[in-house]
Write a protein that binds this DNA or RNA. Structure first.
Length: 880
DNA sequence: GACATCACG
DNA sequence: ACGTACGTGATGTCT
């Protein structure tokens, strides 16, 4: 079955260029447009499987259109050099793929595409056209469809005849009439002044074509419109002509000349290498013949009870790399398989069996003076502790170090770090062990060899990362904060949190009964049974069957998110029931069932893992289970907290949380007089903001005003935008913009600080927190509005969120010390971004409250006071 | 595995 | 005109 794909070369290159940051390869060649173009190309090849293919480019500056209308494309800015340099490279890529490309003096890519599409259509060959330009929609027929880029380059939307009708209510041919009326600024086609898309569509729905509109001047609605159209009749006709794609280009090539056969990876790979398209290279090579990776041989030794004594001298050496291998990711459940040890010359693998009876090794592990380099201390410590082994003397953690050098980076597996900082000589665990169902545990020689590679990589990474930390002035943060925090977290995780299993079960049953009742009610109101959990089925019920208005769409269909449903609630009783169903359903699946699964039967405790190397801002995250998102906002969910109880009889839960830490940090960073004064007087900050923004006195602030002011404060912390605020408050954007303006008038120091932070980010490429934590913002100078705006908001938010994270981490380290110095039995259990949760015997509560407050309020010296509220109770729920 | 949704700070 | 609030993790659908 034949299939023709036609690509609008210039249009796709243009889209790719603006969608991606200005990448270069190490030779300094710009490659972003080439990269985006190639990604799109490969996707189209895979999805469309063409038998014939052509990429058309525009040629020269003038086309036949300029004869009739010299201003055609007149105002268009010159293509930037960074882009035009890349066009020849794109053509090279096409050559490597064996794809024909073509351009013709005097004609545009559109015309070439139109001519070939028509030819194919007449021969009954299906055609797909790929472009970023809506004009091409005029070519759509039953046999010709158009793929328009939607967002980025690879995301496209497919248009057939029905698709064009759905989107514009027009036949494809009428697209040129649309342009004739409304014009096109980018091509400098005038259309009729004052007629935009809305008016143009209205006219076309009534009259069909430009000519017919002009024939019925008298029937047009509105005096102004009549005048305008009458005055610009000729201009409309010319505009329509300019927008019309010419489908009879005289060219010597036709369809049989542009056949395409699947490309040869051998031809493509060298070019991808030169351009440094790593992921694409892997992709074409994976499709092609498997090239086994060439790894250098490494000499290792598997230690046994018989020969362990020979290796004792190694344990006396200065600084060794240690890697402990586990059976699974969750180190609270995993078994230790064995450990690898190296000084950079010898590579040892010590099976657990050997380790468990090798006394000098155990002594070495526990000896604080014996320095070790590890990858993930927290994991290592907990895993060894489960085997009853003490672990001390770790002086460097490659995982934490890698994270600090660039917290935005997504992977910090040892292999990822080797890839980034060295030479990629360590195969990823996933490659070696396989993933999913294919995962297997290596044994013996194979395992020993892989682990030897790991310790070898660690030895080589150490000086590189150490130097990098120093270079970026991250060493203090690393040694004095993150490394000690890992230690504190290890203790918290190891100790765990006690959960009242029976109470959780009872709560679950109660909720399940509610859910059943809600389900019946919803089926009844809907008149049918369906899966309420399926947004698709729910959307069909609400919007098709019950005819509720569609306020928002997602890319796959109707949106049924809570903010939409809340607005629909007054229109139909079912909506409120669904909201309630969702709420209860969430509690059951995530919190009741989810938590029950995580309770360790022997102890009745939950042991979460705090991830210290995930967030871009320096915060922690928590998994398996996530104990940082236990419900609190709604009473029904808040009851989940009743099941979190002290682990010993007669003990209590103590919760200490920072009051407005982020806004206090902002006051400090910005030195805004008004904001600092507010906190020094310990005012209610949202009320204060309301007074300033609405220009009223304290007792005139209404609950609504305070609520809106609170949203403004959130907006400020998040890196304000009028649109975001308007969405949040459900108000027009102009009103939101006015709020922001009033805010900045009242807090000029904040405004200045935000501007300076963004400027600084643009200049140096990153922002920092109070303790020098660093986040790079590669998009801060992007010419893509979206990317740049996002980076700017991030630049404003990260120093605030990140400094708050620095502060609580420091408090945790200090608090852990204080607990031991004071000889308290109390334990730190959890951290939830701005609060710390403890458990303690009753007699320690008063002391602990005092100490916690004191410690949390003084980790850093700010220009405003830090404030901490402390609460105690028999459960987490009570400690409010 | 992607997507939508929703829990938290 | 562009189209978003900042930072996370878990769950259920559906392909």
């Amino acid at each position: 079955m034949d299939k023709l794909v036609l690509i609008d070369g210039n249009s796709i290159a243009f889209r790719a260029f603006y969608a991606l940051p200005l990448l270069t390869n190490s030779a300094g060649t710009y490659t972003n447009a080439v990269y985006g173009f190639t990604m799109m190309l490969m996707k189209v090849l895979e999805e469309e499987r063409p038998t014939h293919m052509l990429v058309a480019f525009d040629a020269g500056k003038t086309t036949f259109r300029h004869k009739d209308y010299q201003e055609y494309k007149g105002k268009r800015e010159k293509t930037p050099d960074e882009l035009s340099e890349q066009i020849p490279l794109i053509k090279e890529v096409l050559d490597a793929f064996g794809i024909h490309h073509f351009e013709l003096e005097g004609y545009e890519a559109d015309d070439i595409i139109g001519t070939l599409a028509r030819e194919a259509d007449q021969k009954g060959i299906p055609v797909t056209i790929v472009s970023g330009d809506k004009d091409l929609l005029q070519l759509v027929t039953d046999g010709v469809q158009v793929l328009l880029t939607r967002k980025g380059v690879t995301e496209t939307e497919k248009y057939d005849v029905q698709g064009v009708k759905d989107r514009y209510g027009l036949e494809p041919k009428q697209v040129i009439d649309l342009k004739g009326l409304m014009g096109d600024t980018s091509d400098n086609i005038p259309g009729i002044p004052g007629v935009g898309e809305k008016t143009a569509l209205k006219l076309l729905h009534q009259f069909g074509t430009v000519e017919n509109v002009l024939d019925h001047l008298a029937d047009l609605p509105g005096k102004k419109l009549k005048e305008r159209v009458a005055e610009h009749q000729e201009q409309a006709r010319v505009s329509k002509e300019l927008a019309t794609i010419y489908c009879e280009v005289p060219m010597e090539i036709s369809i049989q000349d542009i056949s395409y056969t699947p490309f040869d990876p051998e031809r493509v790979a060298p070019l991808f290498k030169r351009l440094e398209f790593k992921t694409l290279l892997e992709k074409v090579q994976a499709d092609g013949p498997e090239a086994p990776e060439e790894l250098e041989a490494i000499r290792y030794h598997i230690v046994t009870a018989e020969d362990q004594d020979e290796w004792e001298p190694l344990l006396k050496q200065d600084c060794l790399a240690l890697f402990v291998e586990l059976t699974e990711e969750n180190y609270h459940k995993a078994e230790v398989i064995g450990m690898a040890l190296s000084d950079g010359k010898e590579y040892l693998y010590i099976p657990l069996e050997t380790a468990m009876q090798w006394e000098s090794l155990q002594k070495w592990l526990a000896d604080e003076r014996q320095e070790k380099i590890v990858y993930d201390v927290k994991r290592t410590r907990v895993a060894l502790k489960r085997r009853g082994l003490e672990f001390k003397g770790y002086v460097f953690d490659l995982l934490l170090a890698s994270y600090l050098t660039n917290p935005s980076e997504s992977g910090h597996e040892l292999a990822d770090i080797v890839e980034r900082k060295l030479d990629g000589s360590l195969p990823a665990d996933e490659k070696v062990y396989g993933k999913g169902a294919k995962r297997r545990q290596l044994e013996g020689e194979e395992l020993a060899e892989h682990l030897a590679r790991k310790t070898s990589a660690m030895i080589r990474l150490y000086p590189v990362l150490e130097e990098e930390l120093k270079e970026a002035e991250l060493d203090e943060l690393f040694y004095d904060l993150e490394l000690p925090v890992a230690d504190v977290l290890a203790r918290m995780e190891w100790h765990g949190v006690k959960v009242d299993r029976e109470r959780l079960k009872a709560l679950g049953e109660e909720l399940q009964q509610q859910l059943d009742e809600l389900t019946d009610k919803i089926y009844d109101l809907a008149g049918t049974e369906f899966n309420i959990n399926s947004p698709k089925q729910l959307g069909e019920i609400l919007f098709d069957k019950l005819g509720l208005p569609v306020l928002k769409k997602t890319k796959t269909g109707y949106s049924t998110s809570a903010d939409v449903l809340e607005r629909l609630a007054p229109q139909h009783e079912i909506v409120e029931q669904i909201l309630h169903y969702r709420q209860v359903g969430k509690l059951i699946s995530t919190y009741v069932e989810g938590l029950l699964k995580e309770i360790y039967p022997e102890t009745g405790k939950i042991h979460t893992r705090f991830n210290q190397t995930i967030t871009a801002t320096g915060r922690l995250s928590s998994t398996d289970p996530n104990l940082q998102n236990i419900p609190i906002r709604l009473e029904e969910g808040r009851r989940i907290r009743q099941v979190f109880v002290p682990s010993e009889k007669g003990w209590y839960i103590l919760a200490a949380d920072y009051s407005q830490i982020e806004l206090r940090v902002l006051a400090h960073l910005s030195k805004d007089e008004n904001l600092m004064a507010a906190f020094r007087k310990d005012m209610d900050i949202h009320t204060k903001t309301a007074m300033d923004v609405f220009g009223v006195s304290e007792d005139e602030v209404t609950p609504l005003m305070r609520r809106q002011a609170k949203a403004v404060n959130f907006g400020i912390v998040y890196g304000i935008s009028d649109y975001g605020l308007s969405q949040n408050l459900n108000i027009p954007r102009k009103e939101a913009a006015a709020f922001i303006e009033r805010y900045f008038e009242s807090y000029p120091g904040v405004k200045r600080y935000m501007d300076e932070t963004v400027q600084q980010a643009k200049k140096q490429g990153y922002v920092t927190t109070m303790l020098n934590r660093r986040r790079y913002l590669p998009d801060i100078n992007s010419r893509n509005f979206n990317r740049r705006s996002f980076a700017e908001r991030t630049a404003m938010n990260t120093p605030i969120q990140g400094t708050a994270a620095d502060i609580i981490k420091k408090a945790m380290v200090r608090m852990d010390e204080v607990l031991r110095e004071e000889g308290l039995k109390a334990r730190m259990l959890l951290q939830v971004h701005d609060e710390l949760i403890f458990e303690a015997p009753e007699e320690e509560l008063a002391t602990l409250s005092r100490l916690v407050q004191q410690v949390m309020e003084e980790p850093v010296e700010l220009s405003v006071p830090l404030k901490v509220d402390v609460n105690t109770g028999e459960t987490w729920y009570e400690a409010k």
